[in-house]
């Protein structure tokens, strides 16, 4: 489980280039995905069992296709790859543009709450755990 180190990680890290440089290199400095928005809980699945090193795809792209042989959220992919979510969004955009992943965005409910049946399903699911 996580320790007390967590709090220091929330400090400003101006002089702490380590975690930033690698993501920058991974995306070639791109900040936004070419397509898609990719909520933290958008669910992603690969459309192929594997991809070779097609032109324009890096090892992180290939790793995502490997991970997404099972259904994972954007947050889970980022955690498994140890990359910031923004970096993973860029990589997912590349994959989505090539139809190498299928993405399900969560139902957007900015104004209200989801359907009653969603609540009931969650309550029943929790009770059954």
């Amino acid at each position: 489980m996580t320790g007390r180190g967590e709090s220091t990680e929330q400090e400003w890290v101006d002089d702490h280039a380590g975690p930033v440089v690698r993501p920058y290199a991974v995306t070639g400095g791109r900040a936004r995905p070419v397509t898609g928005t990719f909520d933290l809980i958008s669910l992603v699945t690969a459309t192929r069992a594997e991809v070779g090193s097609e032109s324009g795809l890096g090892p992180e792209h290939v790793a995502i296709v490997g991970l997404c042989q099972r259904i994972l959220s954007v947050a889970e992919i980022a955690a498994h790859l140890d990359l910031p979510v923004g970096t993973v969004r860029v990589l997912l955009g590349d994959l989505a543009a090539r139809s190498l992943v299928q993405v399900r965005e969560p139902r957007a409910t900015p104004a209200g709450l989801p359907d009653e049946h969603v609540f009931e399903a969650v309550i029943n699911g929790l009770r059954a755990l």
Partner: peptide, 21 residues
């Protein structure tokens, strides 16, 4: 528990904007 990170610019306006890193 898993851990994920967001990188924010100083102002907090441009989330994940790494272009000016």
């Amino acid at each position: 528990p898993l851990r994920t990170e967001e990188v924010l610019t100083e102002t907090g306006i441009g989330i994940d904007d790494l272009s000016g890193v």
